[in-house]
């Protein structure tokens, strides 16, 4: 699936672009991240953690899907 690859690459690119800004940012006042992570008794942190696990499993399933499709194609062509 080419689109999963595109999404992964776009994500990696965004991460690379955001990284230096984060490293040099001054953390004096609580930024948007603190405000959001600490909101509602830090409940948003839990939401983020659960979301990461779901996204990770879904990406893993997408990669499995890609390999399975390749194998299916080989079965179709070979037999």
């Amino acid at each position: 699936m080419p689109w999963t690859r595109t999404i992964a690459e776009a994500g990696a690119l965004l991460l690379c672009l955001a990284w230096p800004a984060r490293t040099f940012a001054q953390d004096n006042a609580p930024g948007w991240l603190e405000q959001s992570l600490h909101a509602a008794g830090k409940m948003n942190t839990v939401i983020a953690v659960v979301a990461v696990i779901l996204i990770g499993l879904l990406l893993w399933m997408a990669s499995l899907d890609r390999r399975l499709r390749k194998a299916e194609k080989r079965v179709e062509n070979g037999s």
Binding site: L33, L37, H38, K42, T45, A48, V49, V52, I53, G56, L57, W60
Partner: peptide
């Protein structure tokens, strides 16, 4: 390694908070 990656990322978010 999938679970290690999930463990590292979730741990990192929790550490930030």
């Amino acid at each position: 390694l999938l679970f290690a990656a999930l463990g590292l990322i979730t741990g990192s978010i929790w550490a930030r908070a």
